[in-house]
Design a protein around this nucleic acid. Structure first.
Lengths: 217, 217
DNA sequence: CCGGAAATGGGTGGCAGTGCCCATTGCCGC
DNA sequence: GCGGCAATGGGCACTGCCACCCATTTCCGG
């Protein structure tokens, strides 16, 4: 066997990093070479360490795991990426695939699975938990029914700013003041977000932002 | 040295349980004898295993860690309890103390700390992360300033029902229909919750419910 | 160069949430 | 028994959110 797979591990909870590290380091073909507590740190470490594989939590400060994944794919084209998350959610699953991830593992079900996902990623095989397969098939059928256009809907930067502030509990008037724009424009961005994400009101926007790690609960 | 401390570990993420177990079992004086994925399972296992120490995550399905802690203190009076959580929040810290916990450990800072907290709990010494000490002192000063009354405000069962439904995005009318009461009564419960918890609107109630593990984001 | 998307701003109307006032019933503990 | 608290319900007024309509400016890519 050749040298072990060099892994970058990013999660904002030291306890989780420690546990995952113990799990991975007990496998002879896997070794954790760097740990990051947020997305920005993950990118900085990836520049110097140049790992073979990055395991990224979605909900992290500064940069989310998905944002970090996009940046890492651009920076180190050969890198493999696994997204490790609490939430079984189609939206994030497809976002992860678009961001360059080759696997998606749930914290609630993973322990042995994580090791298998690492090996699958290095063999360039996708790793999908069972629920994700269902979502993938449903999406395929949906796209076929609609004639083949791909959704690829992405929240713009400005919209994400507004999303954060809405989810933090600011009123439209407050957000307008913070961003130096009119209340109407804030409401328009919010309406676009609701429509793009298929949500109903600012309460659902809040839950979305929490799942995405954009804000702390 | 006598027999190791027998520990019950409850967290809804298998990955976290696995990691924590690896950390604890590597200490000769600590051993994990049972793992639970939710609060109800934790209580059932505690009945049969009668552990010396329970480590409980706050955010769990069925029963939260705080609810489980209250029940465990009642059921097994000698048991020591550690609350292990993502959130550095005074509200939960004091709730945990009232629920019978002798320690409060943050996932974001704990790894070595967790082992120390276990040993402190078994010596009947409280374990406090630094921020908690600050909160404790501030609370002490506040109580002294107000003349010594203790807050002890607890959300009633009915209020908790309403809290969950509000946080899940149901309107007052929907909740009224689900609970067979009038819209006005729903609004009164919600208003009482806002006042008791020191929150401003249903969006903050949602974030509170998520932190408390009452609902999933 | 032209079409589309992003960002900006406006008006109108309806409904929900929230605050503040009022009340009754029933239960528990001192 | 009586005081307090939980749970129930109502009225009124204000504010904010959201849906639906309208528009202009800027910039990027084919």
């Amino acid at each position: 066997m050749s040298t072990p797979v060099r892994i970058l591990l990013a999660d904002d909870h030291a306890l989780v990093r420690r546990g995952v590290r113990l799990i991975l380091d007990s496998e002879p073909d896997l070794t954790v070479v760097a740990e990051a507590g947020d997305g920005a740190e993950a990118i900085a470490l990836a520049r110097t360490e140049r790992p073979d594989l990055a395991i990224l939590d979605i909900a992290m400060p500064r940069l989310t795991g998905l944002q970090a994944a996009r940046e890492l794919s651009r920076l180190l084209p050969g890198i493999r990426i696994l997204i490790l998350t609490m939430y079984d959610n189609e939206q994030f699953f497809f976002e992860a695939l678009r961001a360059g991830a080759s696997g998606y593992v749930l914290k609630s079900v993973a322990d042995r699975d994580l090791v298998e996902a690492c090996r699958a990623a290095m063999r360039d095989e996708p790793f999908l938990y069972p629920g994700a397969v269902t979502a993938l098939i449903r999406d395929y059928l949906d796209r076929a029914a609609r004639g083949g256009e791909l959704p690829a809907r992405v929240v713009t930067e400005r919209e994400e700013e507004v999303l954060k502030l809405v989810a933090e509990g600011h009123s439209s008037k407050e957000i307008a003041g913070l961003l130096f724009i009119s209340v109407k424009t804030v409401e328009r961005h919010r309406a676009n977000l609701l429509q793009k994400l298929g949500l109903r009101d600012r309460l659902e926007l809040t839950r979305y932002a929490i799942r995405a790690g954009l804000i702390e609960p």
